[in-house]
C-alpha cells in the first residue's frame, strides 16, 4: 500500500476520521476536504491515494469528488470568491456585485487573477438569504454586500489575509419585533 502524493500530515488527519464511522468508506468526504485544505485542490493522484487509504477503487473516490460542487479538482486562487446567484440574492443585486467584481478584478466568472490571488465563481444558494447579496471567500461568509464593502473586503484580504467584515454567528434581525 504505497501512497503517491499525500503527505504524512494529511494522512494522519484522514486517519483521525476513521473512528467516527463504522465504515471506512464514509471517510471519503472528510478525506477529500482534508486534502483540499492541505493542498488547495484535489489532484488525481491524491484521489488515488485516498482510495488506497480507504480500501476503495479510485473510481469510487472520483465519483464522489465530481458530484459535490465544493471540491476543486483544478487549482484555484488563494482567495476563492463564490458569489451566490440564487433567487434571494439575485433579487437584491447579486448581479451587480458580480459585475463589480469582474471589473475590479479584471477577470470573468470562472477565471483566476494573474497574480493567482482571486478566483471568481458563481454558486447556488448558500443559506444566507437574509444577508443577501452575499459571497463566500474561502471558509467565511460576507453578507450585505455593496461595492464599498466589496472594496474593503478585497483590500483587507490582500493586506491581512482576513477581513473583519466576515460574518460571525448569524444575527439578523437583531431580534424579532
Amino acid at each position: 500500500m504505497k501512497l503517491k502524493t499525500l503527505s504524512e500530515k494529511t494522512v494522519k488527519r484522514i486517519e483521525a476520521e476513521y473512528t467516527k464511522y463504522p465504515d471506512k468508506r464514509s471517510v471519503t468526504l472528510p478525506a477529500l476536504r482534508i486534502v483540499q485544505e492541505d493542498n488547495a485542490h484535489i489532484s488525481e493522484s491524491a484521489m488515488a491515494d485516498i482510495a488506497t487509504l480507504l480500501g476503495l477503487t479510485p473510481i469510487q473516490v472520483y465519483e464522489v469528488a465530481t458530484f459535490y460542487s465544493q471540491y476543486n479538482l483544478k487549482p484555484v486562487g488563494k482567495y476563492f470568491i463564490q458569489v451566490c446567484k440564487t433567487l434571494a440574492c439575485s433579487l437584491v443585486g447579486a448581479g451587480s456585485i458580480v459585475d463589480y467584481l469582474q471589473e475590479k478584478l479584471g477577470i470573468a466568472v470562472g477565471e483566476t487573477t494573474q497574480d493567482g490571488l482571486f478566483t471568481l465563481k458563481l454558486v447556488e444558494c448558500l443559506a444566507a438569504c437574509g444577508g443577501a447579496p452575499m459571497m463566500q471567500i474561502n471558509d467565511r461568509y460576507y453578507e450585505g454586500l455593496n461595492p464599498e464593502r466589496v472594496d474593503r473586503i478585497l483590500s483587507d484580504l490582500k493586506k491581512y489575509g482576513t477581513s473583519d467584515l466576515a460574518t460571525g454567528p448569524f444575527m439578523l434581525p437583531v431580534m424579532q419585533g
Partner: peptide, 15 residues
C-alpha cells in the same frame, strides 16, 4: 463509475 452530476452525469473510468 458515474461522475459529474445532473444533466452532465457520465459513466466512465477514473479520471
Amino acid at each position: 463509475g458515474s461522475f459529474d452530476r445532473g444533466n452532465g452525469t457520465q459513466i466512465g473510468t477514473f479520471a
